[in-house]
Nucleic acid binder design. Sequence first.
DNA 1: CTCATATATTTAACATGTTAAAGAAATTGT
DNA 2: ACAATTTCTTTAACATGTTAAATATATGAG
Lengths: 156, 156
Amino acid sequence: MSREKTPDDLGHDALLPHNTRRSLPIALLRAREAVMAHFRPMLARHDITEQQWRVIRILAEAGRVDASEMADKAFILAPSLTRIIRSLEERGMITKHKDADDGRRVLLEIAPEGMRVIADVSPESRAIYEQLETRYGRDRVEILLDMLDELATLND
Amino acid sequence: MSREKTPDDLGHDALLPHNTRRSLPIALLRAREAVMAHFRPMLARHDITEQQWRVIRILAEAGRVDASEMADKAFILAPSLTRIIRSLEERGMITKHKDADDGRRVLLEIAPEGMRVIADVSPESRAIYEQLETRYGRDRVEILLDMLDELATLND
DNA sequence: CTCATATATTTAACATGTTAAAGAAATTGT
DNA sequence: ACAATTTCTTTAACATGTTAAATATATGAG
């Protein structure tokens, strides 16, 4: 067994990255997954994805919103958003119009079917989030949100 | 303008979720994206994805690893891992063998081409991570990692 | 030993992420 | 007014995420 030329012999100390679980990218991924694991089954029961939920939820909050604004608020890339909009429109949850003042823009609005989903999902979503806040600590959630925001805006 | 029957008139206060930017799922997503924005261009120059990098990096750290263990360490779902393994094997970065003791398992090992990528990417990755740590605060990174880990393990 | 069950991996099908490029409409400079 | 440039959205192509089901092998009860 005494150290032959195994793959991990090349620079195990000097060259290689550190432990996987103490790396920010994976830690953020794991934390996010743990959180979403609470929401996803509920959303699946209502037959919507996490991203679709973000879109209709933002429309319910903000009223009419154009695609760029939506991409920004929901943190969804434009190509994904195009597909999500198409799908939500086909399912009657939102409506889509060209902006009369700027023909490039697409204006989105929630439709009655979308409002129905909002009404169904919101209470459950809220309950899950509140349970999470309670278990993790309401104040610590605030601290974590602040720290995450600082990390997200480091570049600006 | 005086409040007609706009979509957001239904339960704006009682029913709807709170502000998007103060929600853990999106805050975690935004933070992760901000971090990965530092790494992705570098990885792209070396023609690998973030997930492919995680896989070969773990093989370099841990030597021979089976697929389940890899899925766990790299935090990649089994179906994604199957495709990533196929791609990395085709590109000569890893090798794949059936476990002699348990025919269900697939054992992975890094190949010379993978070692070359490790040698190329590791220093750059390290430099980026260290710059990030410095800018955010080395100790605050530790605190953040602890808080994220606690969030990720709330369910256990 | 054999059947039922459990575990590891793969496949399938669809949704989203990611980058680059194309298309369409607005803006700017001249 | 017009050509060049910029901005917004979509398309394309490929990689990964997500859930369910299929496949292959191990394991355990009887």
